[in-house]
C-alpha cells in the first residue's frame, strides 16, 4: 500500500502546549511538520531524546532542520548592536525565535540539505 504524505503547519505555541507524544504520533503517520519558529537548543535535544525512545523496527527516527532568520544587511557596529537588541526584545515579547523548523519521519525524508538561508527536503 502506498504511504500518504501529509504536511502539517504547526504554530510554535501549539507545539509547546502539545504533548511531545502527539508530535511523534504525527511523525509516525508520515507527516512532515513545519513550525513557524526556530526551536531552541533545549527543545531540539528534548525532541531527539524523546524520538530515540520511540525508535522501533517501523520508525527509525526523524530528520530535523531549523532556520533562524538573521539580517544579512551590511551594518555598522552601532546599527548591528541596535538590531540585535531589537530582535532580542521582540523575540522575548512574542516568546519565540524568528525562523522555522521542519521535522519529518526519517523513513520518508531521505535527506535534508541545509543552506544558510533555506532548507531542501528530499522525500
Amino acid at each position: 500500500m502506498k504511504k500518504q504524505l501529509r504536511i502539517k503547519f504547526l504554530p510554535y505555541e501549539k507545539f509547546r502546549q502539545n504533548n511531545i507524544n502527539s508530535v511523534l504520533k504525527d511523525l509516525h503517520e508520515n507527516t512532515i511538520i513545519i513550525i513557524d519558529a526556530k526551536l531552541n537548543s533545549d527543545e531540539e535535544f528534548f525532541l531527539i531524546r524523546e524520538t530515540m525512545k520511540k525508535v522501533s523496527d517501523t520508525f527509525s527516527g526523524i530528520e530535523l532542520s531549523s532556520l533562524e532568520f538573521k539580517s544579512k544587511e551590511k551594518m555598522n557596529v552601532l546599527r548591528k548592536t541596535l538590531d540585535t537588541v531589537k530582535t532580542g526584545l521582540l523575540e522575548k515579547m512574542i516568546g519565540k525565535k524568528r525562523g522555522m523548523t521542519i521535522i519529518g519521519p526519517a523513513d520518508l525524508v531521505r535527506k535534508v540539505k541545509k543552506n544558510p538561508e533555506d532548507v531542501l527536503l528530499y522525500v
Binding site: 531527539i48 531524546r49 524520538t51 530515540m52 525512545k53 525508535v55 523496527d57 527509525s60 527516527g61 526523524i62 530528520e63 530535523l64 526519517a106 523513513d107
Partner: peptide
C-alpha cells in the same frame, strides 16, 4: 536523530544483532 537497524545489515551484522545494536544505540544517544 535516526537509527535504522537495516543500515547495520550492510556491515555484515545479522538481523538480530542489528536490532540489538540499534536499541543500544538509541540508549547511547
Amino acid at each position: 536523530t535516526k537509527i535504522d537497524f537495516e543500515n547495520f545489515l550492510g556491515f555484515g551484522l545479522k538481523k538480530k544483532e542489528a536490532k540489538t545494536r540499534a536499541k543500544e544505540a538509541t540508549k547511547g544517544v
